[in-house]
Amino acid sequence: MAVPTTRMLVLSVVRLLQPVHGYDVRRELLSWHADEWANIKPGSVYGALNTLQRDGLIAVDGVGQARNRPERTTFRLTAEGAKEFDGMLREALWSADQPKHPYYAAVSLFPHAERDEVIAALRSRIMKFEGELAFLEREEQRILAGSGDPVEMAPHHVADAIRLSADHLRADLNWSRRTLERIESGELDVWPGAIRPASEREGPAAE
């Protein structure tokens, strides 16, 4: 079973910056770009904090108010929370599961779309990936150029998470470019003729 990413990352930030309030947990994860490479929705951070408190994994450290700002509750990791975090992190570290790519199904259905539309979609995909990759590469360098102190900015190890995301994106970009080239050159041509069902493609059944 996959480790609940939001739960694990919220616990990690509480552990790193405790005592810390929800706004700073959210801001820290956004500075890591966890909303992109971990698909964490910013609004889900507060829900995760409530759940973690209910489960006894974090506890209220204090409630304070600065000037005219609303009251803010700060949290600390409990002993049970530290144990839970260690277990989730260990499971995540040893995981080798690959995510099911949503584009796999679309690729298998190329023959059911017009050739020109597939080409246009691949070109659009390539442009999008090129922009995203340039952004990730800049962010990696920006983080590594900083102090790495989580009080000041994203810590250096976040650059490795961004690099992993960039490497996956780079592989997808390379595949998209190669596939577009193969279609445009005629090497990959799955459109002429009817699609034969598997039962007609297979040889006679063994007796």
Rank of each mutant, 00 (worst) to 15 (best):
W32V: 03
V13C: 06
A38M: 05
W37A: 03
E84S: 13
G87Q: 13
F85W: 14
V158S: 04
R15W: 07
T74C: 02
S31E: 10
R90E: 13
G81A: 08
A145Y: 03
H101R: 11
N68L: 00
L109V: 08
Q18Y: 12
V45Y: 01
P102Q: 05
R76K: 15
L122R: 07
W191M: 11
R178L: 11
E207H: 05
K100P: 01
I40P: 01
E132Q: 13
D167H: 07
L29M: 11
E84W: 04
A154D: 06
V25N: 05
A92T: 01
K83W: 02
R27I: 05
E137D: 11
R76N: 14
W191Q: 09
N39F: 10
L16D: 15
A38P: 02
W175G: 09
D97P: 00
Y23P: 02
I126D: 02
A161P: 00
W32I: 01
R142A: 12
H156Q: 11
K41I: 02
R142P: 02
V151D: 08
K100D: 05
P204H: 09
E71M: 02
F110Q: 08
V60E: 09
N174T: 14
W94V: 05
R27T: 11
L109Y: 07
N39V: 04
A92R: 13
E184S: 12
A121H: 02
A96H: 14
G81C: 06
R201W: 06
I143N: 03
L52F: 08
A154H: 05
L52T: 08
E202K: 14
G193E: 12
W32N: 00
V20N: 04
R76A: 11
H156I: 09
L11R: 11
H101E: 13
E202L: 15
R27A: 14
D97R: 12
G186V: 04
L144F: 03
A48E: 11
L109H: 12
I162Q: 03
T6A: 15
F129M: 14
E200V: 10
V14W: 01
R178D: 10
E36I: 10
R67Y: 01
R125E: 12
A166K: 05
D149M: 02
R142G: 04
E200R: 11
L136H: 04
H157W: 14
R196I: 13
T73K: 13
K83Y: 01
T51G: 12
M88E: 03
R170D: 08
L77A: 06
S108V: 05
E114N: 11
Y46C: 00
S165F: 07
P192L: 12
W191V: 08
A134K: 07
G203M: 08
D35F: 05
A66Y: 01
P197R: 03
E137W: 01
I162E: 00
D160R: 09
G203F: 01
E137Y: 00
V63S: 05
S124I: 06
P102H: 04
H157D: 14
T6D: 12
I40R: 06
I183D: 04
A105K: 13
T74I: 00
D167A: 10
A121L: 07
R54P: 04
T6M: 09
A96K: 14
R67F: 00
R201D: 09
N174V: 13
D61H: 14
E80L: 13
A161R: 06
